[in-house]
Design a protein around this nucleic acid. Structure first.
Lengths: 203, 203
DNA sequence: ATCCTGACTATTTTGTTTAAATAGTCAGCT
DNA sequence: AGCTGACTATTTAAACAAAATAGTCAGGAT
């Protein structure tokens, strides 16, 4: 079942769960609490979602979908590849923050990720990479970027962004990022993107 | 007491500990085992080092010292800043691998680091930064690099390198990096350095 | 005085049991 | 089809015991 063809009730449940998970993280919210929020019994909640994992997965996929939709929209309105890339890293960072709140445990680590999530994550990474590859290739064809291997370079770019994100989280015990840390991360990310763009640009 | 003015016995102990910690990590090697290696009683080992932490700290500082010495040597023989930077990332990466073996737990994370280590780590980061700043400033004065804020850019560069390293480790349960992963990390690091250098170079 | 040791104690880690919390099921009602 | 109370199954947390290892010390050897 796709994100698009859900019943109203399911959508409502997803919204409530999204809000709750976003506030305290999956492992701190019980199914009972979500049911209470919906003024529903827990058993009824299980009528819609077979288990907690699938509910969480649906919320994560909803977030992913919202991010991809949002960024795809912008792609249509922005013409310059470099501007586009800057826009991308911005949006991506706020999405990162959302995901962080959603789980409150090292979300970007494959290691202790259940197979179900591994798959959705791989899919997301593929979409993400596709977007960046498109931007890079566009830049090349417009004569702005000089890139030998756009696919490899896209991977590298995404790895570096991820690295910056992880660096911040890795240094902390409590998996939460405050405004100050966020703006510092944003600053670093922007500075990095500038240099990277310059590094790819025709001299 | 500096790394330089230790008794022969202390040096020997450090070598043995360095080897042992390097093989299995600190937490998997007992003081008894190190003492056995040295054909010494555990109590004697404690005669030289007041506790395990200080022994471990001494080993880490030895490694740091070896790295800094090694890289400083190269700085003297290499003239071109870009070549120097490439040399740096190479050496730094092999040092990373050593440290990884030494602890086998997220060493680069400040969070659960005892104050003693936090200090030596801060010192090391400062030295590291100093080296990069020097390389950058040299590049600027030689008219090769164009950098507005060399200090900030050095921080960013080091953060990005760290990010790439952490990305690899973060995805794993077992904190060990094999040859294949290492060469992939090296490849990414080199590719990144190339783009970064280009991004800093005068057009 | 320097270096070393066996025999000790203190602390940390690991394993085990039990209790509590929460996930998940189901027969049956509306 | 959608919902529920009352149930069971699993997971997590707390408490305790046992094992491993860190760390101490009085005193012996050189």
């Amino acid at each position: 079942m796709s994100v698009l063809d859900k019943s109203n009730k399911e959508k409502l449940i997803l919204e409530v769960a999204q809000k709750r998970f976003g506030q305290y993280g999956v492992e701190k919210i019980s199914m009972q609490e979500i049911a209470d929020d919906l003024k529903l019994s827990k058993a009824s909640l299980y009528y819609y979602f077979p288990d907690k994992e699938s509910l969480y997965k649906a919320v994560v996929e909803k977030e992913q979908h919202e991010f991809i939709t949002s960024i795809t929209e912008r792609i249509l309105s922005i013409k310059e590849p470099d501007k586009l890339l800057r826009e991308y890293v911005n949006t991506r960072l706020s999405y990162f923050r959302t995901l962080l709140n959603l789980s409150r445990l090292r979300l970007e680590a494959y290691s202790d990720l259940k197979p179900v999530f591994r798959e959705t994550m791989i899919q997301f990474k593929a979409k993400e990479k596709e977007i960046i590859v498109k931007i890079f290739k566009d830049g090349v064809s417009k004569g702005i970027f000089f890139i030998n291997d756009p696919v490899m370079t896209a991977s590298l770019f995404l790895d570096l962004l991820k690295g910056l994100r992880i660096s911040v989280v890795n240094d902390k015990k409590t998996l939460f990022i405050d405004d100050e840390e966020y703006s510092k991360l944003l600053y670093n990310t922007v500075a990095f993107t500038d240099i990277f763009i310059k590094g790819m640009s025709i001299k």
